[in-house]
């Protein structure tokens, strides 16, 4: 099963590398990975989409926690969350098909970001299944190139990083242990 793991890591030389090295050293696969700064410039957020049985995912989370440069690891899979991915996709068009492609783009609430006399580039964002659906629909026109950013997620309704470990149990008491 696919899991989405959100990792807050030190924004330091080598930290990203350490995470990726752990995955390859232990033989875990990475479906997608994205990284960027957070509201605190000393912290980066990595969002890793990986696949494995529960036991494997549990090991991945523990192994990530064990790295010195990781600050907090959350398996977001079953959390209330907003999940997005950005895709740039270049599609060929013929005389009659250009407006059809632009229609599709609108249905997916995308933008046309580049065009020349043979191809058109679209920008589409959304959850990964929406991106997959867009690719499927555009396939028959002739896809030239795709770039996907990888998934990013945030938990709904709270800022995870502002919640140090010590307060976690209090937090649970207040909010009730969500099961």
């Amino acid at each position: 099963m696919m899991h989405i793991i959100s990792a807050l890591v030190e924004n330091k030389f080598g930290a990203f590398n350490r995470v990726v090295t752990m995955f390859s050293a232990k033989g875990y696969n990475i479906h997608s990975i994205s990284i960027g700064e957070t509201e605190d410039p000393t912290v980066s957020r990595m969002t890793i989409v990986t696949e494995g049985e529960d036991k494997v995912i549990e090991q991945i989370v523990k192994q990530l926690n064990r790295l010195i440069d990781t600050i907090k690891i959350i398996d977001m899979t079953n959390q209330p969350k907003v999940q997005r991915e950005l895709m740039l996709i270049t599609v060929s068009y013929q005389k009659g098909t250009r407006s059809e492609i632009i229609d599709i783009c609108e249905i997916f609430r995308g933008n046309v970001v580049d065009i020349n006399n043979r191809t058109i580039m679209l920008e589409i964002t959304g959850p990964p299944d929406k991106i997959d659906a867009a690719i499927n629909v555009l396939e028959p026109f002739g896809i030239k190139e795709i770039a996907r950013s990888g998934t990013v997620v945030l938990r709904r309704g709270e800022q995870i990083r502002k919640l140090p470990k010590e307060y976690e149990s209090d937090h649970k008491k207040i909010n009730g242990d969500k099961k």
Partner: peptide
């Protein structure tokens, strides 16, 4: 002391 050791090989 190392949580990664637990349930790694034997549950």
């Amino acid at each position: 002391i190392d949580p990664t050791c637990i349930d790694k090989n034997v549950v």
